[in-house]
């Protein structure tokens, strides 16, 4: 019984240390990924060239709604380049 208890205590020690180690590594790795992506892959700002007169035709909030809808549907890949009234 004593042998089993001491084995269980060892399992507890190793287990807790491993869980802490893995989650600490997650913290470190996560921070490294964030820093590297911030440095080398910052999200490209969506610059939209407004055609002359277009700004007057489409209100800003309408434009923002269309832009966010396109972003959701395309998972951030699509960009609004032109809006035409049909």
């Amino acid at each position: 019984m004593d042998e089993t208890i001491s084995k269980a205590l060892l399992v507890m020690l190793v287990g807790m240390l491993t869980v802490f180690l893995i989650l600490w590594l997650i913290t470190v790795i996560g921070n490294i990924i964030i820093r590297l992506s911030n440095k080398y892959l910052p999200e490209v700002e969506q610059v939209v060239k407004e055609k002359k007169g277009e700004a007057q035709q489409i209100k800003k909030n309408t434009y923002a709604a269309i832009e966010s809808a396109v972003s959701i549907v395309t998972n951030g890949k699509g960009k609004v380049s032109e809006i035409k009234k049909i």
Binding site: L21, L25, I33, S37, L41, N75, G76
Partner: peptide, 25 residues
Amino acid sequence: HQIKNLKTVKIVFPIVLGVVSAVFV
């Protein structure tokens, strides 16, 4: 540190974490 490109981080994270956890446990 603010995350500037969350989408990329979210894609890379499970790949790297998978490799690390597989090596340790």
